[in-house]
């Protein structure tokens, strides 16, 4: 794979994951703005939907970050190693 192809693949994954975070966060914000009563309803004693979703926004950020790092550490880095091996440069490759 060329550095161009790798750049394009990284870009697609980056955009998809960024869209994921945006959907999660702005979904949360829109619910706060337009569904106040739903966000205030209780899941169980002491836990409103809003608080649960707020915590889940943080957890979702972690999960998406972890997914990207998982992909980059395995797929991206191995493609990069193959590419660097071909071009004779090792800078930026896995250590």
């Amino acid at each position: 794979m060329s550095s161009h192809a790798l750049h394009v693949r990284r870009w697609r994954i980056a955009i998809a994951l960024t869209a994921g975070v945006a959907v999660v966060y702005f979904g949360f914000i829109l619910l706060i703005a337009y569904r106040k009563e739903f966000m205030g309803s209780l899941v169980t004693n002491g836990l409103s939907v809003g608080i649960l979703f707020g915590a889940l926004v943080i957890v979702a950020s972690w999960v998406l970050t972890w997914l990207y790092v998982l992909w980059a550490n395995t797929h991206f880095d191995s493609e990069l190693a193959a590419l660097s091996g071909k071009s004779g440069s090792v800078s930026g490759g896995p250590r």
Partner: peptide
């Protein structure tokens, strides 16, 4: 109460964006 949590989440969600688009 709850309203403060808008900021708790807002100040974190920028970090995945930094990772996906900018850092490397």
């Amino acid at each position: 109460g709850f309203d403060g949590l808008i900021y708790s989440t807002g100040w974190l969600v920028g970090w995945p964006v930094v990772l996906f688009l900018i850092a490397e």
